[in-house]
Amino acid sequence: MANPYHLDESSESAFKNEYPPKIEKVNNETVKIYVWELPVRIFHWVNAAAIFALMITGIYIGNPFFDSMIQGEASGFIMGWVRYIHFFSAFIFTANLLVRLYWTFAGNKYASSNLFRKIFWKDTWESVKFYLFLKNKKPHFVGHNPLAQLSYWVVIGVGSIIMILTGYYLYTEPQPESFLGKLFQWVPVIFGDSFDIRSWHHLVAWAFMAFVVAHIYLSIREDYLSKNGTMSSIFTGYKTESKDSIEDIKDESMPGEKNDKYYM
């Protein structure tokens, strides 16, 4: 019998060395699947908090909408503090992403994503049809569906890279000779001069906000349609799924025991 966990059969499993999730039996029909492991959940909320802090402070930096209370003399440090918080959040944001990148390889099968497979794009297309209320053959996904994965790649992946490159370039503009400054000296080759780089930084910031609206909506929608606890999953890690939905991992042993078969 063909191995049900063969790589090409699911757009959720991306790489060979990843392991299946922990599964707990609820009753004969339902199981609880540990989808988002702790590092993923910590990443998620640190990331969200950092982005909100960065956006609020960033908007102030771009357009300081309130003034210092002390008029007349430059004794306050409002913009100074706002910039300081922006930079502090930026460092956390960056470190957090690096940890998540590591977890892409160290985590369970829902922690990774591989765009370089035909099945991924086939399922993406089915997902697009699903969201457009068209007839589709979208399978049920326990993790993120490929369209969601794609949105994370584009916004959290590419978007964050743009924010980090442009952000650190702006950050090191006063000290081009510093170590960090030298690291980002080449950024103008891609993003243009100082004015262009600031523009990129500001515009992509808004792309993040648009993502957040769509992302929260789609999470709620998924929860509403599949009643699988998507919303609570990002807090607890568990989704409640019918046994059929884990067809591809069904002959796996129950919690704790490992099955070497899945480590091809």
């Binding site: 300081p64 309130f66 003034d67 430059a74 004794s75 306050g76 440090f77 409002i78 913009m79 100074g80």
Partner: peptide, 9 residues
Amino acid sequence: RAYFDAGLF
């Protein structure tokens, strides 16, 4: 610049 950091515009 001191006014920039202070938030006086």
